[in-house]
Write a protein that binds this DNA or RNA. Structure first.
Lengths: 132, 132
DNA sequence: TTGAGTGCAAACTATTTGCAACTGG
DNA sequence: CCAGTTGCAAATAGTTTGCACTCAA
């Protein structure tokens, strides 16, 4: 997961602009939204490079990626609300046996003016089989 | 999001097998894992059809899809742990201002034998702008 | 000078779709 | 019969990568 040798990053206009736009918005943009925003003032910018820089920024800990643990969609035969644990080492997804807390939805409704229908809670870490 | 006219679903061997395998496993399979499992005993099966049936099963409420709200990866300039709300109507992702509860990680560790490093909590519903 | 960064296009991965044939009710 | 379902292959969508050129330190 971690690289052994540190990368010696430089400063690039592209990466700085991408970071800038991410730090200045409270939206949670996609790569191509960022590309579309920057392209007019930076016509040589390429989408592939936006992706490249986003992953460097994630690696540097400057930004966060909001994706599910796996690149594949996963399906669950259990339709009861329940929580999941995702092992960052082997990728396994396991059900978690703690009670589903519906009050959380009300709590968020109280803190916002959104209508909250449900929630999803995922834990990340290392499963028993990968531990050592 | 919802179709106006109900679909009149039939019973198909393919769909029943897919549902059967999902109900019988506690893993959280991908489409192609299901395909690989069924293919030997069902050589005419096609991957595209597995996808088709999975989405029908989700529509029928028989199974659950474990994907992030959007098909795009999203990036967040805020690296502090915080929770998100996803509007199912317009797709907006908003930060939620309730305190991050680190105790949850301990709670899950107590209930399992996994090492829990962090968690992600997402709420789904309808945002103020889409409400009416 | 040199290795990190870039644009471009091609490659790749996961998923969806058009179509003609098939099938269950 | 007829609409739902199928396999197949082609199309799509998002992301990654190889390459030769460029630029920052």
């Amino acid at each position: 997961m971690d690289n052994l040798q540190e990368k010696n990053y430089r400063k690039s206009k592209q990466r700085q602009k991408i970071l800038g736009i991410l730090k200045s918005t409270k939206s949670h943009p996609t790569a191509s939204w960022i590309y579309d925003k920057l392209k007019p003032g930076f016509p040589s910018l390429s989408l592939g490079n936006v992706y490249r820089n986003l992953s460097i920024l994630v690696e540097q800990g400057c930004i966060q990626e909001l994706k599910f643990g796996s690149t594949f969609d996963r399906y669950d035969g259990n339709v009861n609300p329940h929580y999941h644990f995702i092992c960052e080492s082997c990728g396994a997804i396991k059900d978690i046996e703690i009670e589903h807390n519906d009050e959380l939805n009300r709590k968020v409704e109280a803190a916002t003016n959104y209508r909250v229908k449900n929630h999803r809670l995922e834990f990340f870490g290392c499963c028993d089989e990968c531990m050592n």
